[in-house]
Amino acid sequence: MTITTLAEKLNLIKLSGETDKEVASCYISDLLSRVLGGCQAGDIWITVQSSLNMVAVAVMTEASCVILPEGLAAPDNVIEKANEEDLAVFSSKESAYSLAIKISELYPKSQPLNHLYT
């Protein structure tokens, strides 16, 4: 499943990024060091963190995209940085829990796709 398909199926609002990578599993956490240790390449990362550090952590871990739940937005400078890095950031009105259930239904046999990302 690609980012575009994911965004369509979940009615995500695109904030940044033109990339259309394959998405793998899903990782949810707001503690950035937890994410650096746990988020796998290709994961959809759901977080309430909308700072520049969120962009850096998503880039370092090779997350396929970021979803800000509960209608959260990101500041302009964060969107600008995400576009520079070609990182797809979305906003959703739904909670992280609700998003995770829907992602699971869409992609129940998800696997990390480390080999796809550089």
């Binding site: 707001d30 503690l31 950035l32 060091s33 937890r34 650096l36 240790g37 550090n53 969120m54």
Partner: peptide
């Protein structure tokens, strides 16, 4: 509050 300080930095580096 910025999302750091979970006490995972050095353990992550080691990993």
């Amino acid at each position: 509050e910025m999302g750091f300080g979970a006490g995972m930095g050095l353990p992550n580096i080691k990993k």
